[in-house]
Amino acid sequence: MRKMENSRLFKLWMVVSTLIVLISVGFIIGYIVLNGIKSISLDFIISSPKGLPLGSEGGILPAIVGSLLLMLIACGFASFLALATAIYVVFYCQSSQIENIVHIIVQCMAGVPSIVIGLFGYTFLVAKLGLGRSLLSAGLTLGVMVFPFIEVRIEKSLQEFSTAALQSSYALGVSKAYTLFKLVLPQCKEDIVAAITLAGGFAMGATAPIILTGAVIFAPIPSSLSSPVMALPFHLYILTGEGISLEKAYATALVLITLIFAINIISIALTSRRKEVGS
């Protein structure tokens, strides 16, 4: 009897937990989509914020462009360095001690809260280096944030490459660089791009690192790296925090998550294609 009851409770626990999670996701997405769709329009996407207070009318084009640019700078900067670091650790590093040091530093950095990275960007890039609150400062700060994220994923993918195939390549007298470019990178390409796009979604949604490094309440589409930018998450924060316009906030949230999901879907599609090819 007792056993039966335990087993029921256990099953109930699993089912209720699952329902809670699924309902939460459904609620969050439904809430944003249903509310957002009412106040979104083409005009909202292709025009600049207007009205008084600013943002209560008009659209969010500069914020969309700003967010995309920030993502581009962050990912470009971080993935270039992360790819090199991962390649070094997996293929060129001879000593396991150096490998450990790299891992420790990367792990350390991954553990730094994003707001503290923002604090660093504000003090060092904006103030000390005099880059000002700009696209560049914010992009680089985001880049520092996503570096560990990208490096860890690329390194894992490279590490998974078949050792036997590597040895066979070296056994033909072929150099490391050739092996990398002709054998390893083509094989890991999808994983690498997936890691970078995923990081792009992460960077695009991040607010804390850009509050003081570049995001502003209003700016036109940036004309140079040193212009301040609007960004979707920051714009959403301002619209809500200052109580400017709830409708615009819903629509902004919808645009933001749509963009991020689009990015994630690209990344998932890439990863699953890789699986098919590899089989």
């Binding site: 078949s162 036997a164 195939a165 040895q167 066979s168 390549s169 070296y170 056994a171 033909l172 007298g173 072929v174 150099s175 050739y178 002709k182 054998l183 083509p186 094989q187 590899g278």
Partner: peptide, 28 residues
């Protein structure tokens, strides 16, 4: 390594096409 070739115990084809497996080293 070029003049003394080796074939390992476990078959280890490159994850490329048959054709590219064979042109891999000659191209190099």
């Amino acid at each position: 390594r070029r003049r003394i070739g080796i074939v390992f115990q476990k078959p280890s084809p490159f994850p490329l096409s048959i054709y590219r497996n064979l042109t891999y080293a000659p191209v190099y």
